[in-house]
């Protein structure tokens, strides 16, 4: 294993003493197994603002990081149900003969009378109900995923690190951010070095 090196241009402990602010500490690992073991220790040390970076999905990493299950499915179900009832309500409303108050105005529906079907014909409504359920679910799934992940994000401090470029190729990284309540530059650096990384590097904002 390579000896631990630190960024020569930026002594770790003084990183946040300069004009730029410290974003966090980056630890580099050679294998997904090393990453998993390190992640378990970071989790057990009680850090909260930290993340793992890997070129491919690593099975079991969520558990190693102690990530809770997302509530996204529950929200998507709610959005889908909203779509169902929106479509049902919309069609019932537009097919009604009676006057309804809508946005402060009294309006009547515009029922289609086709082949002797009653205006309130559930089978005819189902395709629209189906489509709106899917549409609401899909749009909310994608947009909530963006929201929860803080996307779109056009800039990230990690992209300044040359070392981090290999995160999309063959290296595995753990970043502990400076905003973590348990983060202390020196102590966290010492802690990361105990995890057997190839290197530890400070990353500036």
């Amino acid at each position: 294993m390579t000896a631990v090196v630190t960024n020569t241009t930026q002594p770790l402990a003084t990183a946040n003493a300069k004009a730029t602010r410290l974003h966090g500490l980056l630890a580099e690992f050679e294998t997904p197994g090393d990453l998993m073991h390190a992640a378990e220790k970071v989790r057990d040390a009680g850090y909260r603002w930290w993340d793992c970076h890997s070129p491919f999905p690593v099975h079991g990493l969520d558990a190693a990081m102690g990530i809770k299950r997302t509530i996204l499915p529950v929200l998507v179900f709610g959005a889908g149900a909203t779509g169902t009832f929106t479509a049902l309500g919309l069609q019932a409303f537009t097919n009604s003969f009676s006057e309804t108050i809508w946005a402060g105005v009294w309006v009547t529906g515009y029922p289609f009378l086709i082949s002797g079907k009653p205006a309130m014909s559930l089978p005819a409504f189902i395709p629209v109900i189906f489509e709106l359920t899917i549409l609401f679910s899909a749009l909310s799934a994608v947009s909530l995923m963006f929201l929860f992940n803080g996307l779109p994000q056009l800039y990230h401090p990690l992209f300044k690190s040359n070392r981090f470029r290999r995160a999309s190729n063959d290296r595995f990284f753990i970043v502990i951010e400076a905003r973590d309540p348990k983060f202390l530059p020196k102590k966290t650096e010492e802690f990361l070095k105990t995890l057997d990384p190839i290197a530890v590097e400070a990353v500036e904002d």
Partner: peptide, 12 residues
């Protein structure tokens, strides 16, 4: 099941 039903119901 619904696809089969709806076509027949609509065409009547």
């Amino acid at each position: 099941g619904f696809s089969q039903y709806m076509l027949i119901w609509y065409a009547n």
